[in-house]
């Protein structure tokens, strides 16, 4: 065996292996996650798995409630959105849309589309402006009248660990979503429920 060749080749090989290891570590990767699986939370803040948990819990509660009047058929609901009272920019429209979707799929409730009301009126005006043959026009005065308003509030309380000697910073975030159904005729809150999520995250104080 040629010793001089070996000593020259060894650092070269080591360098190649080191570059290969580093290159593997630096490669960009993408993988698809199953939204139904348990999700790892990168921090204590609100994320999509929280939305799923909130929607599932409140939809179940609404489906099983005996408190809403069903004598004259399926209750008709109009959603007035969920107020965001947290310190995060959370799109609460996603929560109310998903709850509505679940309830429509279950077939227990009917919904009127408040967001499309102006468009519906504009379309009706267009049809009666002479562009559409009379037999194809919608019949006015046939819109559904809602029985209940669905509304809610998302709140959060954040607590940070007090300043002291430590290696990690801990943060505790508590989210609470209250959802309620108001009877439009009586003004009574006919149903209400809430979901609570509390999470603690820890972040090292020192890093590279």
């Amino acid at each position: 065996m040629n010793l001089s060749k070996l000593t020259l080749a060894t650092p070269m090989r080591a360098a190649v292996i080191a570059v290969a290891v580093l290159a593997t570590g630096c490669a960009a990767t993408t993988r698809t996650l199953d939204p139904n699986e348990d999700t790892i939370h990168y921090d204590a803040n609100y994320d999509f798995s929280d939305k799923k948990e909130i929607v599932a819990s409140l939809t179940d509660s609404l489906m099983n409630t005996p408190l809403l009047n069903r004598e004259s058929g399926k209750p008709i609901i109009v959603t007035y959105g969920i107020a965001n009272e947290t310190a995060e920019h959370i799109n609460t429209g996603g929560i109310s849309d998903d709850i509505r979707l679940s309830l429509i799929k279950a077939g227990e409730y009917r919904f009127v589309n408040r967001k499309q009301r102006d468009n519906v009126l504009a379309e009706a005006d267009f049809q009666y402006a002479g562009f559409v043959p009379p037999e194809q026009r919608i019949i006015e005065g046939r819109q559904l009248g809602a029985n209940y308003i669905l509304s809610g509030t998302l709140r959060s309380i954040e607590k940070n660990q007090p300043r002291q000697w430590r290696l990690n910073k801990r943060k505790l975030v508590y989210y609470s979503l209250n959802l309620e159904m108001t009877n439009i005729q009586t003004g009574e809150v006919s149903w209400a429920d809430n979901v609570e999520i509390a999470r603690e995250s820890s972040q090292p104080i020192l890093g590279w």
Partner: peptide, 17 residues
């Protein structure tokens, strides 16, 4: 400004280096 806020959250540690 949102990018600035996100960056501050990422920088919330003491860099030894």
């Amino acid at each position: 400004f949102r990018a600035a806020t996100d960056m501050l959250a990422r920088l919330d540690f003491i860099s030894v280096r």
